[in-house]
Simulated scan of single mutants.
Amino acid sequence: MIELDVTTDRGIAVVVPRGRLNMVAARQLRQVLADIITGGTSRIVVDLAETTFLDSSGLGALIGGLKSARQAGGDLRIARPTPEVMTVFTLTNMDKVLRPRDDVGSAFDV
């Protein structure tokens, strides 16, 4: 099971998945992202510094969140991916779509 922490500051929600972002956890992440957007926050940073594993379901949840955030007028950014997670992004070319940021605080800086 994954632990998902959510904080909101200055109109930006930060989601921190801790553990394995796999098929089971992806459902949880999809719901958390949907709840954030439904609650009126469409700028989201997913901090992946404590995510130890990412499979296609987890990647799908992130892409779904990106699409929903953009439809709501915002965006979803990722920050601090672990080497294991970055490997998945690179192999799938999703690092071009979900361009990783070095830190959470500057994820929405220009």
Rank of each mutant, 00 (worst) to 15 (best):
Q31D: 11
S68I: 00
I37S: 12
I37M: 12
G40M: 06
D95F: 15
F89V: 13
D75C: 01
T92I: 09
G64E: 00
G73Y: 09
I63P: 11
G40E: 04
I63Q: 03
Q28E: 03
A25N: 05
E50G: 12
R70K: 00
G39C: 05
E50C: 12
Q31H: 11
E84F: 15
T41I: 14
T82V: 11
R43H: 13
T51Y: 12
S57P: 04
R99N: 09
G39D: 02
I63K: 05
T90I: 10
T92V: 08
L76A: 01
K67L: 05
T51S: 10
T38V: 15
L54G: 04
L91G: 03
A26R: 01
E84T: 15
T82A: 07
L76C: 01
V32W: 08
L29D: 00
K67G: 08
I78F: 09
F53G: 11
I44N: 04
D102R: 07
L48A: 10
R80Y: 09
A25K: 00
N93W: 15
D35C: 06
P100S: 03
Q71E: 09
A69E: 00
G40K: 05
D102Q: 11
L76I: 00
R80G: 07
L98A: 12
D35R: 02
F53V: 13
Q28D: 04
A26V: 07
R27E: 09
T41V: 15
V45P: 08
L54N: 04
R101T: 04
A61F: 14
G64P: 08
I63L: 13
A79P: 10
D35Q: 03
E84H: 15
V97Y: 14
I63F: 13
T90F: 13
F89W: 14
R99M: 08
A25G: 05
F53W: 14
A79W: 08
P81Q: 04
P83H: 06
A26W: 07
L98R: 08
N93C: 12
Q28H: 06
T92F: 04
P81F: 08
R43G: 09
L33C: 02
V88R: 05
L29H: 07
P83M: 02
G65L: 03
D95G: 12
S68K: 00
A72P: 12
T92Q: 00
T87R: 07
M94C: 13
R77M: 05
V32T: 11
I44K: 00
R30K: 08
G64N: 03
M94A: 13
R27Y: 14
M94Y: 15
L98H: 13
A34V: 15
Q31Y: 13
A25I: 05
Q28F: 09
A79Q: 05
I78V: 09
E84L: 14
D102L: 10
G60A: 08
L29E: 01
D75G: 02
R30L: 03
T90N: 10
I78E: 00
V46A: 03
G73L: 03
V46F: 11
T82S: 12
M86Y: 12
A72Y: 14
A69N: 04
T82I: 11
T51D: 06
I78L: 02
L29S: 02
V88E: 02
S68Q: 02
L48R: 06
F89Q: 10
M86V: 06
G73W: 08
D47V: 07
T41G: 09
